[in-house]
Amino acid sequence: MFIDIWEMRHVEAENAQKALKKQANDAQKEIDKLLGRILDATSSTLINTYEAKIEKLERDKIRLTEQADRCIPPRGHL
């Protein structure tokens, strides 16, 4: 019974990790889009706005990656 609960918890943690990694990948895709927009932009105000958004997304991506790394507990013995 405890082993089943332990395995269910591990599967839940793996699913949470996958979701966090997907969010980090989505943030990277958004960063890439904004970088492309910066190259096309001519307004310094617009460029500054894009840069601020990129900085926020980078912080979010780092946070999500760290959470994903801590999501799955080490396999131990019951």
Results as ranks from 00 to 15, higher is better:
residue 1 M to V: 11
residue 1 M to S: 12
residue 4 D to V: 14
residue 4 D to M: 06
residue 4 D to W: 07
residue 5 I to H: 13
residue 5 I to F: 13
residue 5 I to W: 12
residue 5 I to A: 15
residue 6 W to C: 02
residue 6 W to V: 03
residue 7 E to P: 01
residue 8 M to P: 01
residue 8 M to C: 04
residue 9 R to M: 15
residue 10 H to T: 13
residue 10 H to E: 05
residue 11 V to F: 11
residue 12 E to D: 14
residue 12 E to L: 09
residue 13 A to L: 05
residue 14 E to Q: 11
residue 15 N to C: 13
residue 15 N to W: 15
residue 15 N to S: 15
residue 17 Q to G: 04
residue 18 K to Y: 12
residue 19 A to R: 08
residue 20 L to K: 10
residue 20 L to R: 05
residue 20 L to M: 08
residue 21 K to T: 06
residue 21 K to I: 02
residue 21 K to A: 04
residue 22 K to E: 07
residue 22 K to G: 00
residue 22 K to Y: 03
residue 23 Q to Y: 14
residue 24 A to P: 04
residue 25 N to T: 15
residue 25 N to G: 14
residue 25 N to C: 11
residue 25 N to K: 15
residue 26 D to I: 05
residue 26 D to N: 11
residue 27 A to D: 08
residue 27 A to K: 03
residue 27 A to C: 10
residue 28 Q to G: 03
residue 29 K to P: 02
residue 29 K to C: 03
residue 30 E to F: 00
residue 30 E to W: 00
residue 31 I to N: 04
residue 31 I to F: 00
residue 31 I to V: 05
residue 31 I to E: 02
residue 32 D to R: 09
residue 33 K to I: 01
residue 34 L to N: 01
residue 35 L to K: 06
residue 36 G to K: 01
residue 37 R to C: 00
residue 38 I to M: 06
residue 38 I to G: 02
residue 38 I to W: 04
residue 39 L to F: 11
residue 40 D to E: 09
residue 40 D to R: 06
residue 40 D to S: 07
residue 41 A to E: 12
residue 42 T to R: 12
residue 42 T to Q: 08
residue 42 T to A: 09
residue 42 T to P: 00
residue 42 T to N: 10
residue 43 S to L: 04
residue 44 S to M: 02
residue 44 S to I: 01
residue 44 S to R: 02
residue 45 T to S: 10
residue 45 T to V: 14
residue 45 T to G: 06
residue 46 L to I: 07
residue 47 I to R: 09
residue 49 T to W: 00
residue 49 T to D: 06
residue 50 Y to V: 01
residue 51 E to Q: 07
residue 51 E to F: 00
residue 51 E to D: 06
residue 52 A to N: 07
residue 53 K to P: 03
residue 54 I to P: 00
residue 54 I to T: 03
residue 55 E to M: 13
residue 56 K to N: 06
residue 56 K to E: 10
residue 56 K to Q: 11
residue 57 L to A: 02
residue 57 L to I: 01
residue 57 L to Y: 01
residue 57 L to D: 07
residue 57 L to M: 04
residue 57 L to P: 03
residue 58 E to H: 03
residue 60 D to L: 14
residue 60 D to F: 09
residue 61 K to W: 06
residue 62 I to G: 03
residue 62 I to Y: 15
residue 62 I to F: 14
residue 62 I to T: 12
residue 63 R to P: 02
residue 64 L to G: 12
residue 64 L to D: 11
residue 64 L to N: 08
residue 64 L to F: 13
residue 66 E to C: 06
residue 67 Q to G: 01
residue 68 A to H: 12
residue 69 D to F: 13
residue 70 R to V: 02
residue 71 C to A: 15
residue 72 I to F: 05
residue 73 P to S: 14
residue 73 P to A: 15
residue 74 P to R: 15
residue 76 G to T: 15
residue 77 H to R: 14
residue 78 L to Q: 07
residue 78 L to F: 02
residue 78 L to S: 05
